[in-house]
Design a protein around this nucleic acid. Sequence first.
DNA 1: GTCTATAGACTGATAGAC
DNA 2: GTCTATCAGTCTATAGAC
Lengths: 208, 208
Amino acid sequence: MEKELMTEERIKRSARNVFSRKGFAGARISEIANSAGVKNAMVHYYFRSKQSLFDTIMKETVMKLRSIINPFINDEQTSLEEKIDLTIEKIHIFLLDNQDLPMFILNELQTNTNPENFISLYFNPMEDNISNSIFFKQMETHIKEQKLDNVISANHVFINLFAMSVFPHLSSKLLMNLLELDEQEYHLLIMEGQKLESLWIKKILNLE
Amino acid sequence: MEKELMTEERIKRSARNVFSRKGFAGARISEIANSAGVKNAMVHYYFRSKQSLFDTIMKETVMKLRSIINPFINDEQTSLEEKIDLTIEKIHIFLLDNQDLPMFILNELQTNTNPENFISLYFNPMEDNISNSIFFKQMETHIKEQKLDNVISANHVFINLFAMSVFPHLSSKLLMNLLELDEQEYHLLIMEGQKLESLWIKKILNLE
DNA sequence: GTCTATAGACTGATAGAC
DNA sequence: GTCTATCAGTCTATAGAC
């Protein structure tokens, strides 16, 4: 029983790693098994098939992301300003620990012939719908109050908020090369960037 | 001779499509061949192997992107302001015609065990190095003149400029779902976003 | 639960006729 | 240049011993 949980968890950890580096099609059961220190058959014993192992991993990962984001996105107590800071900070912290996650999600989304089904499989259309969140409504209200609504919409702000927080992690390898930075320098740049992004989004919104 | 070029071009067009949707590992020679209206053996006749077909496509695509970006990145005549507008505009136009390109490049970069080799295979470290471009130097000079250099660096601006122009295309499917927009609405949003991004980058830099 | 052995299906690549 | 046929290798998945 003790060992059972150990093995299952080791396989999942290895699978997270291999799937996010190679994608579903490129991942090999043998690599997942080897890297977990077990034989191929064990992977099938615990998860039946490659596809169901993948689904398990993906569901858990998205769930973890949702559990971090959703609570304060819908918190009525915090201000728009606080939410902006928090979102950017939480996303950065999460992605530093899960560097491969954005590619993991986007990659399989792209590969899938039916993206709508894929998204509805892992996301909850009611809870995860940003347009219905308190955050979104606060943003809309602010834009109207500041009379910015003839130039921007909440959608624009959200897209660029995600762009600025996610893209640096997503394209780290390419950017490190194009900007000629080593891993440490780039890491430092991302940390500095976090504060700047908050500042910029607020500047765009005439906040503070 | 006439037919030779036709077939070769049809295979490449089909390969571009399949590779960017499925990635290298997920792509099938048979799908590329079928979609091009030829038999499997023809793909090998013209391109010898799956890998060399992929390399050909990737090289051509990156070359096309470079040929669009590099000329005005290093144009001494245009101002910093003009370069910002132009970069954002050119990237948007290019990505509208090549929606799958960012994933195509990033995906295979991630998959590769040795990203440095991959990048040096398709990019030219001398010409494509942003840090050495006129654009980058103009940016640095401006930041110093405006005494912004204690808060931002040219690197930050470039990362976010790319983030804002590329990310909306990269994550279109996910964002359309999370924001509850159909293809037309999202397309309109991206077009509006283009002007805003130029404005925002300039606002950040105290330009105009 | 874990192992070895192997089935069964698929895929990239080549040979050879036309 | 284009086709059919087929090989050789790889990979997922299962059967069965322990």
